[in-house]
Amino acid sequence: MSKDIYACLAGKWECLNSDPHALVWESDPQTWWEEQGPDLFKYDYVNIFYKDIEYRIHPSFIQIITDSRPPF
C-alpha cells in the first residue's frame, strides 16, 4: 500500500515523494509521516524543502493519499 504526500506549495499541489531530496522538517516525507504525522496539527507550521526551495506552510496544506489497489 503506497502513500503519497502532497503539499500545497505557493498555490500548487506537489507530490513530495516525486523529489528524492525532499524533506519535511529534516526527514524524507515518508519517514516524517510515519513518525510525526499523527501529531501534525500540534504545530502552527511545517518546514518543507522541495526542489531546492524551502517552504513554511500550515499543516492544513498537506494531504496524504493512500492507494491500496493492487498494481496492474
Rank of each mutant, 00 (worst) to 15 (best):
P20C: 04
K12R: 13
W13E: 09
D4L: 10
Y55V: 03
D4S: 11
Q30S: 14
W25I: 11
H58Y: 07
N47Y: 07
I48N: 01
A10T: 06
I48H: 00
D4Q: 10
D39G: 09
E54A: 13
W13A: 04
T31P: 02
P20I: 04
S18I: 04
I65K: 14
P71H: 11
K42A: 15
D52H: 09
K12V: 15
E35I: 06
D4M: 07
A22N: 00
G11D: 02
R69W: 08
P29Q: 02
D52C: 07
P71V: 15
K51Y: 05
P20D: 04
W13P: 02
E54T: 09
K12F: 08
D67A: 07
T66S: 13
S2L: 12
N47I: 06
I64N: 04
D67S: 09
C8N: 13
V46K: 02
K51N: 10
D44R: 09
T66D: 09
I5S: 00
N47Q: 10
Q63Y: 09
K12Q: 15
A22G: 00
T31S: 10
V46Y: 00
Y45M: 08
D4K: 07
C15K: 05
D52Y: 06
S60K: 11
S60A: 12
W13K: 05
S2T: 13
D52Q: 11
R69G: 10
E26T: 11
E14P: 03
Y45K: 13
D28C: 06
T31E: 08
F41S: 04
Y6R: 06
S68K: 14
L40G: 02
S2A: 14
W13L: 04
Q36R: 08
K3R: 12
D4G: 04
K51T: 06
Y45D: 13
V24K: 00
R56E: 13
Y50P: 02
A7F: 01
